[in-house]
Design a protein around this nucleic acid. Structure first.
Lengths: 340, 340
DNA sequence: TTTTAAAATGAAATCGATTTCATTTAAATT
DNA sequence: AATTTAAATGAAATCGATTTCATTTTAAAA
């Protein structure tokens, strides 16, 4: 293992003090351009790389941003991450990513690790079964910017980036009602997370606004992924009378559900009209094409990261507003919900 | 911003030296159990967290692993990352992830950033247009473990984790031949990457082994994603005579291609039989279900990370074997290729 | 009880960049 | 040319944990 070059080595080579070398390398205005050039050249020729530990030890900033997501291998989450990475790398920040795997316990461990790694800021999309947010307190207490996105706590004590889930579910449901559906069910995640709570609200309001009956039984709680589609389809098939419309909170899940329903001889949308959520690639590829809520993952990632960087650059200790940024989402109507 | 607690604060509180505190916290055998307990308790009550910079500055290890992928938001890549994260977090390592966006230039920048961030090891899946691997030299020169996965350089100077792309393409092509196809084309990534080169080999060998003609024109080079499917379909439609079989190196691309071909009145598999690559969720959901190569992303991630950690724990400076680990892949036959 | 060996603890140097404060050098002013 | 002012550089302290080497304490052996 070759020895690392330090600023002292550079200082020796160019006959200056380490102080000046340090300043030259960080492009300080109090160093002559000529000197800077000399130093930079020597640095390059020696193969110098800055020791970030020594630097961080003094500066107390890592240029690392932590991100905790439920799952890395989810089409929505990975889009968000892609957006975040894009902005972060432009600003010379690194991304430290970990996944909670929907486990509240692992989320706590992740948070602790992030804290101990001294990330400059933290972005979190919560695990489904996470009840409280105590494990994030160390961040807020130390003044480390913390922003939630998509899966946000019920009572946001920190800024959040979300879509208007109430409105989105309202739009999806209203659309089905417009298509003549009168027995709609709502497949939704089971948890205390605001995301799903609000979708349930939107579903309910859409019915109530038309003086149509709403009962809690219309919500079917389930894990939402490709695997659960069949299981959900079986539950649907046992409902009597058979529903004529479904709002399913996840496209991958909706797609596999549709596939199974079709196998069982159900016609989509004639027998059951369906709207999904996310506008995943799959929604454009299954038959019939899936109506869905377009949910801007990549943009959400970009916005969350920009917002975090903004807070980092505000070098004061201001408490910071706990605003909630709500992104637009839109209903995309395709064949799966068009009865007429 | 509250002041950080250091081992000196703990030392003061319990009336011991920082030395002993340091040793107690790292569970050194030369500290009495009683003393350890006292120190740990004080640490907890003071809200101590170790300053990793100070520690890293001395120990010269960060417990950070860098990963460079072409795209975060790809179903395959995010599975790989999920597998990596899983193993890394168990071993108390952090993942620093960045994406090259298929740009060789950005890959170089990423590599430099990783190098300057002093990652303990690096895992890389190369961008399509990356010709050489000079930008990874600093790692090998400094003895920092570097492992390539999936998209590996042509002449692996570092260990690689791949699947046998030659064999996989051979299997896909042979299957189509078994189905009676005699005019097969191969949709493949355009680049000098070994992945695609080997698939082309496999395609060719399958034909040659049956004494069937092979020409370079049978390979169609393209970007492989959902968006390019339509474009590719158009190219296919203009081939005269129309191919009766396609091997498409990516499921998402194959799916959108199938959709477009169907729109144009082509029957799958009767007119054209198709085999994809990756076993993405989409392959199980489109109609007809897509035959594909099952390509173990999650496992690949786990194996790559385990291998890297192994190299890190071998605390000697041994050159390390440049072995290539080849994972099994398998052809999954579904409707899209079954002519009989 | 004394001697010897082992276990436990501490003092101080170290890792390498940054920063405060002091000093030297150069440029501007009279 | 002498003085003032600004620009450029340097010495040394600092960040906090680790580690080497020395010292003290405790336990085991004589």
């Amino acid at each position: 293992m070759a020895k690392e070059i330090t600023i002292y080595d550079i200082a020796d080579k160019v006959g200056l003090s380490p102080t000046t070398v340090s300043r030259a390398l960080s492009d300080s205005p109090s160093v002559r351009p000529k000197t800077k050039e000399k130093v930079n050249q020597a640095a390059k020729s020696l193969g110098y790389r800055s020791n970030i530990f020594a630097a961080s030890l003094r500066k107390k900033s890592t240029h690392n941003i932590g991100v905790i997501v439920p799952r890395l291998n989810s089409s929505f989450q990975s889009s968000v991450l892609a957006g975040m990475e894009n902005i972060a790398s432009q600003a010379q920040y690194n991304l430290i990513i970990s996944q909670s795997l929907e486990s509240s316990k692992k989320e706590q461990t992740n948070a602790l690790t992030m804290y101990n790694s001294h990330v400059d800021g933290l972005l979190v999309s919560m695990a489904e079964n996470t009840g409280n947010t105590d494990h994030f307190k160390p961040f807020t207490e130390k003044g480390i910017p913390l922003i939630f996105f998509d899966r946000t706590p019920d009572e946001p004590s920190s800024p959040s980036i979300i879509i208007d889930n109430t409105q989105a579910a309202y739009a999806a449901t209203s659309h089905l009602l417009d298509q003549g559906c009168r027995n709609i069910h709502h497949i939704v995640g089971n948890s205390g997370i605001s995301t799903y709570k609000n979708r349930i609200k939107g579903f309910k309001y859409a019915l109530m606004d038309r003086q149509l009956p709403y009962t809690e039984e219309q919500n079917i709680y389930s894990v939402l992924n490709e695997e659960s589609g069949e299981e959900i389809a079986n539950i649907i098939l046992q409902i009597d009378p058979l529903p004529d419309g479904l709002v399913i909170s996840n496209d991958a899940c909706a797609a596999s559900c549709i596939q199974y329903l079709k196998k069982k001889g159900i016609r989509i949308p004639q027998d059951i009209a369906i709207v999904g959520f996310n506008n995943d690639a799959i929604s454009r590829l299954i038959e019939p094409n899936l109506s869905t809520i377009n949910y801007p993952g990549y943009e959400m990632g970009e916005i969350a990261m920009r917002n975090l960087l903004l807070r980092l650059s505000e070098n004061d200790d201001s408490p910071g507003t706990n605003e909630t940024i709500t992104l637009k989402s839109e209903l995309i109507v395709r064949e799966s919900s068009l009865k007429k």
